[in-house]
């Protein structure tokens, strides 16, 4: 028993490093999901498809010797996917959730085409964003350092953007669309830009993950939206949500925390195949927290005062 614990403690720095690297890269995805889920108030399922679009674009372009360019390409392609979802919703009147599902489905074929018909393509270790000579002195920490630099740049740009005139109306759109239109803003445009940026970030995250793990696989995107949501919710609950810059940072930290929880769960014996189920349960609990909390308060009141606690619903 004692030796088990000693072994676990010995592995702990490695667990932290791995979770940190993945968490930081997935934080970019979490920020993307934050934009659709929080600022536009629509859960956007395009994410599962646009993530793989990012991995695919990155794998193909990295192979031609342009790993950095591939990040930009991935962002742009993800943005385009987001635009399609938004246009299906605003111009053709398809429900937001269904628009996302349709684009996600369509992207499966698109992603296969991008990957030249192969479901899995490897990326050479010598041709990734982590393989440039500048990073060599960092040794084992080059992945962590570079991912962190990219994340910090994105965090800074995003918090600046959300505090511009356009950022304000984008944030208000999810809160109160009618009010934004009453302020003379075409909400179709704010939704379009919001989903474009959101899916752009998701694809960028996918591109980084592909280069970090050394391959792109057609099945990598399954459940990405749930992972993003977990990070957003965990982050906001644990690290706070006011003011905006803190909230964005919290979402990023939420992603790292989520990875850490998952890594430790693996370490203490959770089979990797159960990962998706656990993620789904975490998000279900987090999303229903207020309801469960309200229910508990009601039961407590019933026991303490003998009333049925109906006033809580009033």
């Amino acid at each position: 028993m004692l030796t088990d614990i000693m072994l676990f403690l010995e592995r702990l720095p490695g667990i932290f490093k791995g979770a940190g690297e993945l968490g930081i890269i997935y934080a970019v995805l979490a920020l993307g999901v934050f934009i659709s889920f929080r600022t536009l108030n629509t859960p956007d399922l395009t994410v599962d498809g646009s993530f793989v679009l990012g991995t695919a674009a990155s794998a193909v372009l990295a192979a031609t010797g342009h790993p950095y360019l591939s990040l930009i390409a991935a962002f742009l392609m993800g943005s385009m996917a987001g635009c399609v979802t938004s246009l299906l919703n605003t111009k053709l009147g398809i429900q937001p959730l269904l628009s996302g599902i349709l684009v996600m489905l369509g992207l499966y074929s698109v992603n296969l085409r991008v990957m030249g018909g192969r479901p899995n393509i490897p990326i050479s270790r010598d041709s990734t964003i982590f393989s440039i000579p500048l990073l060599e002195p960092l040794g084992d920490y080059k992945e962590l350092a570079l991912s962190l630099i990219i994340l910090v740049i994105i965090l800074a740009l995003l918090s600046l953007f959300l505090n511009t005139r356009f950022g304000y109306v984008l944030r208000a759109t999810g809160d109160n669309e009618g009010m934004v239109r009453a302020a003379g803003v075409n909400t179709d445009v704010t939704k379009l830009c919001g989903l474009a940026i959101s899916n752009g970030l998701v694809a960028l995250s996918g591109a980084m993950i592909a280069q970090y793990q050394g391959f792109s696989d057609i099945g990598m995107g399954t459940g990405m939206v749930v992972i993003g949501l977990s990070s957003v919710i965990i982050g906001e609950v644990v690290f706070g949500s006011k003011p905006l810059i803190r909230r964005l940072t919290a979402v990023a930290l939420g992603s790292v925390l989520y990875r850490l929880i998952i890594s430790i769960a693996f370490e203490i014996g959770m089979p990797p195949t159960d990962l998706k189920l656990v993620s789904a349960v975490i998000v279900a609990i987090a999303l229903s927290a207020s309801k469960i909390g309200g229910g508990l308060a009601k039961i407590k009141k019933k026991f303490t005062t003998g009333e049925d606690g109906g006033a809580l619903n009033a």
């Binding site: 953007f161 505090n163 511009t164 005139r165 356009f166 950022g167 304000y168 109306v169 208000a172 009010m179 934004v180 302020a183 003379g184 803003v185």
Partner: peptide
């Protein structure tokens, strides 16, 4: 600020 910039471009200048 959202109301104040009514009728002016919603660009990337500071929101307030």
């Amino acid at each position: 600020a959202i109301a104040w910039y009514k009728g002016r471009p919603r660009n990337l200048r500071w929101g307030i």
